[in-house]
């Protein structure tokens, strides 16, 4: 066990952690902004749009994130016309390829989470809103969406943790994330597991903070769903 080598190369892991956090949070944010309208359209079964979204969700939930990332990074690079187009300024860079893959993936899972939360909204909640004489738009934005988003919090917390763990895929397309830092350490000193162990501890620490943050959000926004008398 060479804990000293990990500490000596702390900067490797620090920049790796920054890379992992960047990719995870940006992908979650972009994914959420895809999921919000897409989930609503799916729940409403909007004509033409809904089947398209369905296809997108099926495609990205039906294939592993690693394969998606490989296809975007190595796959698209095989086409001369893509390399000659404006898109290449982004696709040339492994960071953008990872962000695109991760965002689309997280968006697909998010879409299903939001859709599920919307369709399971209590009928009584909506009837009460209609009875108050609110317009359809008011019901949507004052009652339905706030309620659905609150109830999607636990599942979205799960998705955030999955995205964090999934972001290790970045290291296979040359990005130096936490796992990349661990691999570099292993390769530099011919170690078998010290780099992986340090990476595991870092991922665990970030997961812990994520779980804590979502628990805080749930405590605040799901208070009304707690059983009565339980504090």
């Amino acid at each position: 066990m060479h804990a000293d080598l990990v500490i000596l190369n702390w900067h490797l892991f620090a920049s790796g952690a920054w890379m992992t956090l960047q990719l995870t949070f940006l992908a979650l944010a972009i994914g959420f902004s895809i999921a919000l309208p897409a989930g609503l359209a799916r729940a409403r079964r909007v004509r033409v749009v809904s089947p398209l979204i369905n296809g997108y969700v099926y495609l990205f939930r039906g294939t592993p994130l690693l394969v998606q990332t490989f296809l975007i990074y190595f796959g698209l690079a095989q086409f001369e016309w893509i390399r000659g187009s404006w898109a290449w300024t982004f696709l040339r860079d492994p960071w953008w390829c990872a962000l695109i893959a991760f965002s689309l993936n997280s968006g697909a899972y998010g879409t299903e989470i939001i859709r599920g939360a919307i369709v399971t909204t209590g009928k009584g909640e909506l009837e009460a809103a209609w009875a108050l004489g609110l317009s359809r738009r008011q019901v949507d934005w004052l009652v339905l969406m706030p309620s659905a988003l609150r109830r999607s919090l636990p599942q979205y917390g799960n998705e955030a943790v999955f995205m964090l763990q999934g972001s290790v895929v970045a290291s296979v397309i040359t990005l130096q994330d936490i796992l990349g830092a661990g691999r570099t350490l292993n390769a530099r000193y011919y170690l078998a597991y010290e780099g992986f162990l340090a990476a595991a501890i870092l991922y665990m620490a970030i997961t812990f903070l994520l779980v804590l943050a979502f628990r805080g959000l749930e405590g605040r926004y799901l208070r009304h769903l707690r059983p009565r008398g339980v504090r």
Partner: peptide, 14 residues
């Protein structure tokens, strides 16, 4: 991770 991948990215212009 492998020489093959490095060569692929040279050919792709990355």
């Amino acid at each position: 991770a492998s020489q093959d991948e490095a060569n692929l990215d040279l050919a792709a212009g990355r």
